[in-house]
Design a protein around this nucleic acid. Sequence first.
DNA 1: AGCGGTCAAGTTGAT
DNA 2: ATCAACTTGACCGCT
Length: 301
Amino acid sequence: MIRLGLCCMFRDQPIRFATTTATSLGRMKRVDALHKLNRLCLENAQALMAALGYCHAHGIGCFRVNSQILPIKTHPESGYAVEELPDGGEVVRLFRECGVFARLHGLRICFHPDQFVVLNSPRPDVVDKSIQELEYQAEVSEWLGADVINIHGGGAYGDKRKALSDFASNLSRLSPRVRSRLTVENDDKTYTPADLLPLCHSEGIPLVYDVHHHRCLPDHLSVEQATEQAIATWNREPLFHISSPIDGWQGAKPERHHDYIDISDFPACWRKKSLTIEVEAKAKEAAVEKLMAELKQKQSG
DNA sequence: AGCGGTCAAGTTGAT
DNA sequence: ATCAACTTGACCGCT
């Protein structure tokens, strides 16, 4: 019933995703930069196939793809279209092969654009660049069959209601392939599940419920209530996040992630439900496998 | 080969 | 005012 997800990278497995820096590319001639990017994109497509193969072999049902899977894709100077790469067609073909593999084995794939993607910023350039980034990730999502591109609510700018209204307004600027995949997640500083649920319902955006963030930044909802209300926003299998505090809930910085998940942080009400749970833990595949084993043990015991 | 400084981007809150 | 935190160390130029 519970499908566990691995986020972006491996701790022990020799599966790595390569990237580069815009600074370094900027020092090169364009043709040389494109050759380098071409090589990195091909390598990353192959690494992604290895990652999916590992997940399938180890019962991990979901994989989150790093934003830099096509490195520096939307950078204002060093960015590029896949068609500009010498082997762009081959890059697309390899990603589509990953999609075929995932579909064949029932693996879910998702994206989580990073903190620079802010749909409600008062700065127009920030919103423009955010949309570019979302469009890039949606293009790769199509190749892969990924069904989730998950972002946070963004800043509050002193007025959460206005900020969420701006978020909603900018949705009209997204292509259907972004819009149909876009989800929003409660964070640990600004937006609680209760803040986001009205937006989710009025705009038809699923809520990615992060129970760790909810415990760091609570609202009037219990974990059980937030779980039920988040599930209600989904028109497909809901996707949630779990993590444990680095030094316990009484520690100095509970919002920081531990290497592993403490099974007592896993909400009892999530068991027996049809859910994808992405495991945000520094031990990566080791943490997913440990949690999987403990969930199984508790189920049978 | 090894090492240390640097890396595209936003926002918040702790210090 | 600076900095760490966020899904995470990896890359690059120097010696």
